[in-house]
Measured scan of single mutants.
Amino acid sequence: MGFKLLSKLLVYLTASIMAIASPLAFSVDSSGEYPTVSEIPVGEVRLYQIADGVWSHIATQSFDGAVYPSNGLIVRDGDELLLIDTAWGAKNTAALLAEIEKQIGLPVTRAVSTHFHDDRVGGVDVLRAAGVATYASPSTRRLAEVEGNEIPTHSLEGLSSSGDAVRFGPVELFYPGAAHSTDNLIVYVPSASVLYGGCAIYELSRTSAGNVADADLAEWPTSIERIQQHYPEAQFVIPGHGLPGGLDLLKHTTNVVKAHTNRSVVE
């Protein structure tokens, strides 16, 4: 069995187990497998329904001669939608809004960016022009300005110390501490036991640490421990890039980060 097929099978099995364990909360999309990078042309966006009122959005972007996937989250909030992270750029984010209108038909009224990198804030200006209120932590807003990236308009308070959590509509926002970046936030959907790890969490097929220019490698494993301790009931975990899975993604990420750190020390 090929690795790609095995990865998709694991996603399907995880979703099936969740649907059985929580039949009222989960209505997993039966329309197909989780979209992969090879299936999404740059400039297009796919939506994948995880649970009743919960979707991931998947886009792709060219970077350094390669094409990478990027995940975000959409959560229903009454007759409105909360968006977590842009679709990595203005063109993708405009396509995301169009796809949401086509498939869901509810307005996106608020959006949260989970850290300051372009795959999370690139497209904020498109959201703002569409009347979406954009939010991020003060740290993310400051770092985005320093980096020359787009800056969300509103500040999220109460997320300055490791372990801080605040309720934001249908989700809980959690600051686990520094990891992929010093400002990275985690998003949890309690009604569906869905954990969105953003770039602080890796997919299972990833074996290298990737972009760690703004990471705190020493603190990252401790931050992941905080996530595990705060959300032990999480059933569906979405990484910032690639295929979702279960809580095993947290341990896998820790292993990859520690291996990278150990290699760096040896070198």
Rank of each mutant, 00 (worst) to 15 (best):
L9I: 07
L10Q: 13
L10R: 08
V11I: 06
Y12S: 13
L13S: 09
T14L: 14
T14V: 12
A15E: 07
S16T: 08
M18L: 05
I20K: 08
A21L: 11
P23I: 13
P23N: 07
L24Y: 09
L24W: 10
L24C: 10
A25G: 10
F26C: 10
V28Y: 06
D29E: 12
Y34P: 12
P35F: 06
T36Q: 07
T36N: 06
T36S: 06
E39Q: 08
I40L: 14
I40H: 07
P41V: 12
E44V: 10
Q49K: 14
A51F: 14
D52G: 10
G53N: 07
A59Y: 04
T60L: 13
S62Q: 14
F63L: 09
P69R: 10
S70I: 03
N71C: 02
I74L: 07
I74D: 03
R76Y: 12
D77C: 05
D77R: 04
D79N: 07
D79F: 13
L81S: 04
L82C: 14
L83T: 04
D85C: 00
D85M: 00
K91M: 14
N92L: 06
N92E: 07
T93A: 02
A94H: 13
A95C: 10
A98K: 07
A98Y: 06
A98Q: 11
E99L: 14
E99Y: 05
I104E: 00
I104Y: 00
G105K: 15
V108L: 12
V108F: 02
T109V: 13
T109H: 14
R110A: 14
A111F: 13
S113I: 15
F116I: 04
G123R: 03
V126Q: 13
A130S: 08
V132P: 00
T134L: 03
T134W: 02
T134F: 02
S137H: 07
S137F: 03
R141W: 03
L143N: 13
L143M: 12
E145Q: 09
V146K: 13
E147N: 13
G148C: 04
N149T: 11
I151L: 09
S155D: 07
G158W: 07
L159V: 12
S160C: 13
G163C: 03
D164H: 11
V166T: 10
V166H: 05
R167K: 06
F168D: 01
P170D: 05
A178I: 06
V187G: 04
V187H: 00
Y188G: 01
S193W: 09
Y196C: 02
G197E: 01
G197F: 02
A200D: 02
I201P: 01
I201Q: 02
Y202G: 04
Y202M: 08
L204F: 05
L204G: 11
S205L: 11
R206L: 12
T207H: 15
S208E: 12
D216T: 11
R226Q: 05
Q228I: 05
Q229M: 13
H230M: 13
H230C: 04
P232A: 11
V237L: 06
I238R: 01
P239N: 01
G245W: 02
G246V: 04
L247H: 15
L249W: 01
N255L: 07
V256T: 08
V257G: 01
V257H: 04
T261Y: 05
N262S: 11
N262H: 05
S264E: 10
E267I: 06
